[in-house]
Design a protein around this nucleic acid. Structure first.
Lengths: 360, 360
DNA sequence: CTGAAAGCGCTTACAG
DNA sequence: CTGAAAGCGCTTACAG
């Protein structure tokens, strides 16, 4: 029965046929109603719906309750239950860039790992921005069972109140007692530097993210170290949100100066940034990779089809989600997590955006 | 104070300096503690934290409570508050394809419209799949203030229990009493048919989504009608999830038969599907648009940089989110929503994937 | 094995 | 303007 008319248009304010139940409000079925119907106490109903029956509820009463639940269509109220238990079964995933194809795989991995016992909810902000401490405080007031924090900044973690069970994702470079699952982005960055060096590049620009996220700091620092080892000069004076348009604009503004400095490649901290550069390069008739090589991090699906294909550091997103989900489950079960957490291997995928490019 | 050691490693099980408060549990600050500190009742604390003070709380007591709140760092508990009020301040966005760049803009629009009074949470499932009724039942047990449902299927809405305030997004073709904000996908599909006809295509394949989502049904039917009006034959025997890989595989399997039938263009129900086709076409050395024209729906950022650029129906994502958020706000305020909802214009963006293509 | 009762943290009539 | 009290829907010791 879809009682939408009660909400959207009061067509029958008088003859409204509801409610069918002696409901507390809006036809909600409560444990008390189930108990009455089954002829037991609400304590017994609770025991049954929580599967805590062994040695505590008779087979007969279990059956009675289950029947009543089915007949009335009872669903345990999340608010009441969570308040009584002290925590909800919500797992909140906090991330700066939810609407990134990369994230689909992270999410799928997390869901696979945490199963149906927990509700996964995403805390969303505007693209590329971490939620504010106030946002998080509100989230925590929902008493989530656990928190999954992707690509945190040091500041964000510092401002985070004691949050209970928490696992960090893609938190390379973060100092925290919380367990974490990371990508080996430093190694990826080094491979990028090696690759560009082998192609003969001498001056390279680095396009950074604006969020202050630790993983981006590590990517950049590792690249700069790797580049220095090869005698490559790095220009790193531009950063944008994780957004093609923003990246394209920033690149357009920076290019004249970069070109003059002899920049022959731009290393982007994400594939999304790189797409913006590719787009703007096309508009500005800058030849890729002939005139300018371009690289990213992530290896999004689009990187194989872009024009040209994007050379990038492949990061195993699904495995990140699965591993983080598994760690959270351990935490929720009260187990120790081996420190200092997992690091997943990253690999370099070479495509047309650098192939055979050269420099001055 | 970051009490993570209490969760992750019990380094100081004995000398633990906490708790500083006579806390109920884990240092949680309650309204009762604030009341005690301010020398007022919890009722007064509640009135102040809810901003219901006019004519009910003296300026003096307001100040006392505010001071105590600040000193103790009190945050109203979401569970207790929601239980007492009968509903939470959570707005849940249900969508089949959260990790789509398209969605970043929808989300940004919704957030812009609903402001800070409501927490926006995304219900996530695996890419391209709508949550199951069981998932939704669990979500509803959180007593969300409102529901935003993107690209619903008829079945999903039929199984949805009376959900309270709800707004449908991209729900073209859906029969429901709930207010909705839609794209004019039918018109977009017609423009696509006109465009392909003008290029001389006579036989076209349609690559559909697998979800049974109404907006996809409308896209397909409108395209078939438009094509028929031009005497174009449509082959529509393939559907996949919204996933490049799945789409690429399906296209690879279908292509031999399609080619034999004289298919010279494939119209995809989303850009993501189209990327899969572009990718597979490249692998299989099918020339686009010479041998095969490809089109999509959405106009994702990547469609401008793909190789070739993708001809697609542009759908204004940000405006969709903003309009839906505004409608939900009206609903929450108890106001009437003008039926039958908004329809946002869609436009055809012509790029290289069809430019100058022709058929037998 | 079972139920009455207290409690989770808050809000809202209600009486003053 | 103020506070004591009831209640939101559930779970968990507790006594039987």
């Amino acid at each position: 029965m879809f009682a939408s008319h009660r909400y959207y248009r009061c067509m029958h304010p008088v003859t409204d046929p509801l409610p069918a139940f002696p409901a507390t409000s809006a036809g909600r079925v409560t444990a008390a109603m189930v108990a009455a119907r089954a002829g037991v106490s609400t304590a017994t109903v609770s025991l049954v719906t929580n599967g805590k029956t062994t040695g505590r509820v008779s087979a007969e009463n279990i059956a009675k309750v289950e029947d009543a639940v089915a007949e009335l269509g009872y669903v345990v109220d999340g608010l009441g239950s969570s308040l009584a238990k002290g925590r909800s079964n919500i797992v909140i995933l906090v991330a700066p860039d939810v609407s990134n194809p990369f994230f689909a795989k992270v999410i799928a991995g997390v869901r696979e790992a945490i199963g149906d016992d927990y509700q996964l909810l995403l805390s969303v902000t505007d693209a590329g921005l971490t939620p504010s401490p106030a946002d998080v405080r509100n989230l925590l007031s929902l008493r989530p069972a656990g928190l999954l924090v992707d690509a945190p900044s040091a500041q964000f973690l510092a401002e985070l109140p004691s949050a209970g069970p928490m696992v960090l994702l893609d938190a390379a470079g973060v100092v925290s007692d919380a367990p974490s699952v990371n990508f080996d982005v430093a190694r990826g960055a080094e491979m990028l530097a090696d690759h560009l060096a082998s192609l003969g590049h001498r001056t390279v620009a680095y396009l950074d993210s604006v969020t202050g996220t630790e993983t981006f700091r590590v990517r950049k620092e590792a690249f700069c170290r790797g580049a220095a080892a090869h005698g490559i000069r790095v220009v790193a004076d531009v950063a944008t949100t994780i957004d093609m348009g923003a990246s394209a604009q920033a690149f357009a503004r920076a290019w004249p100066a970069w070109a003059q400095t002899g920049v022959s490649a731009v290393v982007c901290c994400t594939d999304t940034h790189a797409y913006g550069v590719l787009q703007e390069a096309r508009v500005a008739r800058i030849e890729v990779p002939g005139q300018l090589a371009v690289t990213g991090f992530d290896d999004l699906p689009f990187s194989a089809t872009s024009n040209p294909g994007l050379t990038t550091v492949h990061l195993p997103a699904g495995e990140l989600g699965r591993a983080a989900g598994r760690q959270l489950l351990l935490l929720l079960a009260g187990e120790q997590i081996p420190r200092p957490g997992l690091t997943l291997e990253s690999t370099l995928v070479i495509r047309g955006s650098t192939a055979g490019s050269a420099a001055d």
